[in-house]
Amino acid sequence: MTADARAVELTRAAADAARDKLAQDVLAFDVSEQLALTDVFLLCSAANDRQVKAIQDAVEERLLELRAKPVRREGEREGRWVLLDFGDIVVHIQHAEERVYYALERLWSDCPVIELPNDSA
């Protein structure tokens, strides 16, 4: 089983929105084989708390245009690591320091990477 087309569509839209707010190290993993709750983890980094919030707002706005609302949000108050759960995808927006410390990409390195447009950006 792999991530369905809707999950990939939402992932690419979220990645574009994050990049529009200068998110760094944007990476998506197809976790559908490992997790029953979601298909994709999208990871991205931000330089500071303010940028984390700007990326969060941009992702939510873009996905709302595609009729996807987060079913759960975590970490908004702290602004260091925001998790947005859209059901099919989970977006992790991490302050650069948290990204290094928690190294989620290492945890999910055995999962297929989803190709994102403008991966070189």
Rank of each mutant, 00 (worst) to 15 (best):
L116V: 03
F41K: 05
A121W: 11
V71Y: 06
L10W: 15
L104C: 10
A96P: 03
L27P: 00
L35W: 11
G87F: 09
R12V: 14
D49I: 02
W81V: 00
V82Q: 06
A58L: 06
F29G: 02
S45G: 10
D20P: 03
A15H: 08
L22N: 13
S32Q: 14
P112E: 13
V31D: 06
A23S: 10
V82D: 05
D88W: 08
T11N: 12
A23K: 02
V52Y: 08
R6I: 11
P112K: 11
A28G: 05
L83E: 08
S120V: 06
D25Q: 14
W81L: 00
A18M: 02
L35D: 07
I89Y: 06
E61N: 10
E9H: 04
R6V: 14
R77P: 07
E60N: 07
F86Q: 12
D49H: 08
G79W: 00
V90I: 15
R106Y: 09
I114K: 05
A58P: 04
V91S: 05
E61Y: 09
S45Q: 10
N48F: 01
D16P: 02
A5F: 07
A5C: 04
L43G: 01
G87N: 10
L107Q: 06
D110Q: 09
T38L: 10
A68L: 04
R12G: 03
E65R: 13
K53W: 07
L104R: 10
G79Q: 01
V8C: 00
E74F: 12
P112R: 11
L42T: 02
V26S: 04
Q34E: 06
N48D: 01
L84G: 02
R6S: 12
Q56E: 13
Q51P: 09
D119M: 15
A5H: 11
L116I: 05
R72A: 13
A3W: 09
D20M: 05
